[in-house]
Design a binder for these strands. Structure first.
Lengths: 188, 188
DNA sequence: AACGTCTTTTTACAAATGTTAAAAAATGAA
DNA sequence: TTCATTTTTTAACATTTGTAAAAAGACGTT
């Protein structure tokens, strides 16, 4: 659980007893490629830490499917919308390869938040960090061209191109697959 | 302080003593239209609750200025990026009219988080709610056309059109002012 | 009212991206 | 290897949006 442990510690420095309180609630789950970890229209009862593997979040529109997030080792899979409103979320999160995840039940998490100030602060930090990541994603989308974001994606997730159809990546970049092909032709 | 009080209570139900701990740290500031509450390249030491008025966040690109957020009564003005990393943020937040704000120093806030579990949970909820708002903004941008988002903006901030140059709104919608004019011509 | 300034709309044209379909390339199974 | 299937690229054309500049409108001042 090396990656997950580091992730948890990096979020907020927990003292040993509180760290153990959290760790003992984690359950290793090994899930196959294409598995839907989070399903739209369902109320989610768990969050996950990605120990190994890659995942994506997508959302179906009227006549298209848009991927708006990729996650890998050290990232968390968490439908905040579903968790906060206690209603079905809007996103699907799918594994792009066989993954090892650590699962944490949200009702356990809420209980921990209510009973331990240290863990409440850890949870605050978890949300704050997720917030600035989302914000960065949003702003990158506003200020960078699809070409710039494609080049960055290659750096951040070098293995992605091997494993994901280009149509998925194109939707993440906000262009059609044809345009992505033109971008690829341009930069090589 | 009606609006701010309601905002604070709505975030997370604080019991009276903890609510007072927070309230007594708030300081009313009245600031004029066009004032920059948050400045890019500066480390921010406060967050603000909008009691009355409208504000916007913008960011300067190479040759353009993009507005990516509007806020009004009940919203908070908070540079999470600057606060979390303790480095200068990237956004400017400008008042679009004379505003009454309640200011809260971030070092006071951190102190409260560390010493009171209730307030740590309030802070967690503050971040969680900000997160899903940002997420919704991001997703709306991916799935809705500029026209749809313009119509929604008219509903959410009916007064905005009166007070903000259309160029600003166009940048928020992700189109040029010419295109926004075309949209406006189309829907009336 | 008349003037200057700023904002918004309109126009004409250019550039970028989308659409559709076909060709080429890659992949996997027999 | 060969064949069938899927994915990616290319091409031709249509549509949308951007750019630049002019026209129209709004606003405040004298």
């Amino acid at each position: 659980m090396q990656n997950t442990l580091e992730t948890i510690k990096r979020i907020y420095p927990l003292k040993e007893p509180h760290l153990q309180l959290l760790l003992k609630e984690l359950k290793l789950v090994e899930l196959p490629k294409n598995h839907l970890v989070i399903e739209a229209e369902k109320v989610e009862r768990s969050l996950y830490f990605i120990e190994t593997g890659i995942a994506r979040a997508y959302l179906d529109g009227k006549d298209n499917r848009i991927t708006f997030w990729f996650g890998h080792e050290g990232d968390t899979i968490f439908s905040y919308h579903s968790y906060i409103h206690n209603t079905p979320g809007y996103e699907n999160i799918e594994l792009l390869e066989n993954c090892r995840l650590y699962e944490l039940k949200t009702d356990v998490l809420k209980e921990l938040y209510d009973t331990h100030a240290e863990l409440a602060n850890w949870g605050r930090k978890l949300a704050e960090l997720a917030l600035i990541k989302t914000e960065e994603c949003y702003i990158a989308r506003l200020f960078k061209t699809a070409k710039e974001r494609y080049i960055e994606l290659l750096k951040t997730y070098p293995s992605l191109i091997q494993r994901v159809p280009l149509g998925v990546i194109a939707s993440y970049l906000g262009v059609t697959q044809v345009t992505l092909s033109r971008i690829r032709a341009e930069i090589k």
